[in-house]
Design a protein around this nucleic acid. Structure first.
Lengths: 201, 201
DNA sequence: AACAAGTTTGGCAGGCACTGCCAGATGGGC
DNA sequence: GCCCATCTGGCAGTGCCTGCCAAACTTGTT
């Protein structure tokens, strides 16, 4: 609805878009800084807005909720996951496709340190964790139809496909939890493989 | 903290406790009725309190949050699950123990119709679902140490145990989702078995 | 360079969940 | 019947979030 005549231009040159991008980054950085400094619940929207130099009203226009100030948008995440799965070779099974999707998702983080910091924050804050889990199940639901095609040849019904997707995400979560417990030691994907091996063994 | 000199008496005779129990039921019923009638988000605490005949302040003393007005307390749930697992015979594997725990949890519902209604409500309301998922992972975490003993002989480490517990819960959730999709057709535990079979190949 | 049109912003009022505080009502033990 | 412990209700206040409207700004045109 915003820019209709943009075609596929690489650098969106309009001043509005640039300012918007800057403000987004500024807000996001400020929020993350304050959250890690004094805790999520102890940080108010008013404070973030003040220190980021925008009004509360504008902040809420950029990010719908306080929880959104943590991670990339859910939409972006869903797109990445579904596209990655879709791009997998036709002969790849559902498990491989899901693994590839997780790998792609993990590569979004700029550094393991930042990932650790973020995971820790989400993991230790009830409201944040709940919000994350909500996004997670919505991702699962979006992924289900994409994977059903890959599972139909094996004679799997919808319910079983759902169980497989849910299991993959569960093992991914378990892997990040274990990774977190070890303060970022090792590779999340390795932990994921080990967990899945224990389950499917 | 409330009654200390109660020992293990069956009928708590104090008037206070009886009134308290009555009020709890009244509030719970009113809330569930209003939620199903007009939706969770469209129902305010003020309305529930008014129709249940208590003040908002008292309602919040009985139930800490609006989400708590839906299901049994998290504590009760955790206790049931852990106790059930603990009571399983020593030679039962982790998977059987978890299955038994889910079976026990399912038997808490008074009727499949009520269970369906409740599940539907939780499933369709974002905030409720997020709260439920939060409780769920906390249950997982409490269950982990109980199951670790059962898994140690197989040479499973903590991370793998976590993956197994997470997978069981994931398949349980997938089963309820499928059950919900079929409007309560079939048995949740059967769906759980089918899902787990698909996962464990 | 000024103008018209569309978009974004900020401030205000308000709703809702939730909490701390304090006075008043109520049940329990003597 | 009395005192103490507990519970209740109302009030004010915080924090997240939304709708609304006027002011400021960007853009394309003349």
């Amino acid at each position: 609805m915003t820019q209709g005549t943009q075609g596929k231009g690489a650098t969106t040159s309009t001043l509005w878009d640039r300012t918007r991008r800057l403000a987004t980054q500024e807000i996001l950085q400020t929020a993350l800084r304050l959250f890690t400094q004094q805790g999520y619940d102890e940080t108010t929207i008013a404070q973030i807005a003040r220190e980021a130099g925008v009004s509360q009203r504008t902040l809420f226009r950029y990010f719908g909720t306080k929880e959104d100030l943590i991670g990339g948008s859910e939409e972006q995440f869903v797109t990445l996951l579904t596209e990655t799965v879709r791009k997998q070779p036709a002969d790849a099974g559902a498990w491989e496709a899901l693994r590839a999707a997780f790998k792609a998702a993990l590569s979004l983080h700029t550094s393991p340190e930042q990932a650790l910091e973020r995971f820790r924050l989400v993991h230790h804050t009830d409201s944040l964790r709940a919000a994350y889990l909500g996004k997670r199940v919505r991702c699962q639901e979006q992924l289900l139809p994409v994977l059903e095609a890959r599972l139909a040849p094996s004679g799997m019904d919808r319910g079983q496909a759902r169980a497989i997707v849910a299991t993959a995400f569960a093992c991914f979560d378990a892997a990040t939890a274990t990774w977190l417990e070890g303060n970022g030691q090792g590779d999340i994907l390795d932990l994921y493989d080990q967990g899945l091996a224990a389950v499917r063994g």
